[in-house]
Write a protein that binds this DNA or RNA. Sequence first.
DNA 1: AAGTGGTCTAGACCACTCT
DNA 2: GAGTGGTCTAGACCACTTG
Lengths: 246, 246
Amino acid sequence: MAPNRLTLVQPEPGQSRYAALAAALRHRVMAGEWPAGTPLPAETRLAAEHGVALGTLRRALELLAEQGLIERRHGKGTFVRGGLAGATMLRFFRFGSGDGEVPRSRVLSRQPVVASAEVARRLGVAVGDPVLRLHRLRSLQAQPRLLEDIWLPLPLFAPLLDWPLADWGDLLYPAFAERCGVAVTRATDEIGFATLTAAQARHLDLPPGHPGVTVTRQAYDLTGRCVELRTTRADAFAFHYAVTIT
Amino acid sequence: MAPNRLTLVQPEPGQSRYAALAAALRHRVMAGEWPAGTPLPAETRLAAEHGVALGTLRRALELLAEQGLIERRHGKGTFVRGGLAGATMLRFFRFGSGDGEVPRSRVLSRQPVVASAEVARRLGVAVGDPVLRLHRLRSLQAQPRLLEDIWLPLPLFAPLLDWPLADWGDLLYPAFAERCGVAVTRATDEIGFATLTAAQARHLDLPPGHPGVTVTRQAYDLTGRCVELRTTRADAFAFHYAVTIT
DNA sequence: AAGTGGTCTAGACCACTCT
DNA sequence: GAGTGGTCTAGACCACTTG
């Protein structure tokens, strides 16, 4: 795409111009025109490029900023956001003194499998499609705290098949970005409750049948496709979560 | 306050004009100038009243709309919002077939007490201040499902002291609004797990020691003061909650 | 048809960040 | 000082709702 050319937006009937413009910009971002962390052109420049008034362009950018696609910094510029931080799962749990500490992670097993009905549904792939299954234990202060089952769609995450287990860091999302070019931008968590199986309890240093909390996460990238399904199990009594309702 | 007079806003240093204007409008709403459900004056009128451009006035209204204080309806007007619906607690739980059904509520006990340290802290009153304590059981399809402990600051909720128990409806927030003039606009919920005591389990038709979920709610009115502290206990296995992270 | 909020424009000026 | 995003203005026109 020629960067200096005029590219008019064509709002569909019933759609506002700034909404159409936001969609157009969203596509340019997702096409990789400005990689994550790099600034977009200045407002005046972008407005001229798309043949709209400054206020309209700003409305569009505000929309994208709300959606978390870009980030605006006064005096500096408008930047394409990278993925989520990665330690977000921890904000659900309260452990002794390790607040803000990144948990140590150990991959217990890694194997390519075929997607079950449940996994396929949540991951948005076909039943029987190849997926990478990870089993992972995360510890705080040498105490095992979180037991994770992770499913990743396989053509996409193939680089992880051979990656030496010793080189896996404590956070997965940065690894997704570096190794597989996948940026997680949005995730949904479902919180439920179930007693731990004997095997699960053993990993977590808890008695069998101990009450456990189950957090099922589906993570999505810029294009909205689900790139990760993760089930985390932990001590229910160490779980704590706060929400604001409006 | 004279409605037709010019009332200029005075933004504090470092504050934008629309922010100052929003604060001014917020005060006018909270002072009861336009009761809940009634429309504010038209944009052009309000802008003229406060001596600002239309765009600035709109920015201020957008702020208040985001905060849930007002609601804008295209072609109709800008309205002061009432309180929260009231059945919000249910969205945490999945029970058999009663989706969307409003649970039947029965008040088990009602007594004025003095605030303990914990209740005082969460309610924002002094230790020893009078509060009204309610014990309440809520059922779906004749099955007891939710056991609630509720504390209400007492000068404010005095009308509830004499109100015949037979006349209490199934929802509390509408009653708060009608009887005590209290509109709940915001609430925070904290979710945790704990085993049920024998007494709690008995009310819920569950065995003693059964795993329970505890939702602690603090509800606030327009002015930001806490008007309700509520602890809800229920079957942990029937608990389910979904969040979106961005 | 009249009144409401929603969109869009064109331009001025301010506040922040870097060099 | 030059470049960025943030605020504010004044006015035109559109879309929705109601009588």
